[in-house]
Amino acid sequence: MSRRVSAAVIVFPGSNCDRDCARGWEAATGQAADFVWHKDGAMPDYDVVIIPGGFSFGDYLRCGAIARFSPIMNEVLRLARRGSRIIGICNGFQILTEARLLPGALLRNRDLLFICRDIYLRVENARSDFTAGYRPGQVIRYPIAHGEGGFTVSPAGLKKLQDEDRVVLRYCDPEGRVAPDSAPNGSLDNIAGLINEEGNILGLMPHPERLSESILGGDDGRIMFQSIFEAAVGAGGLN
């Protein structure tokens, strides 16, 4: 079986974690990722697509609202249907909800301030393609950096996410307790990351790439990229 996984990082005007995502991916997997410009109407069948953080189109109108209309999003949809793994981080998550590839929406943080700091997450579902390298219930540390990360969804939508075990990461305290005040942004049900019904699209507000090398202060994020890599080569994951 090939250990080669093709990965792309989509670049929108205003993306600013594009290089970081490629660097984090390479640090974790040893393989370089390509950059794909948002105006491209076609892209190869990448195994993994990363939609990075930043302020696509300045976050004007609404975070992710303009990016979803970029030509490349048709290709992201095509690859998603094909079964490629798609991960949207921060602004990437916002774009995926705007594109309706994931349910819900991201609201302004509870305190109305941008927050950049390390937070704790509990791995709620360690069977996904994105989290298989973690232990169920493991408490991990990722940074957040966003002004609009409070996840919300309709009551029916929330129940569906819970029933289908699609909430893969919840904000928690350092001991792993999930309480409303351990969600720094006021996220509904402390939701930090969730997957689609098919399980091949993950959206999350925290940044795995920012703690993917120990020199940065930790490497919990590296395991997420390695999980995706293993899922893609078919050596790990359960899908």
């Binding site: 290089r19 927050i115 950049c116 950096a145 940065l216």
Partner: peptide
């Protein structure tokens, strides 16, 4: 104040705000 600033983007910040000086790799 400094938590309102994204002080990590770029993946070079190896000593974050709060001390005497920041260090970037």
């Amino acid at each position: 104040i400094y938590e309102q600033y994204d002080h990590m983007v770029g993946l070079n910040t190896v000593l974050r705000p709060g001390g005497d000086a920041a260090v970037l790799r």
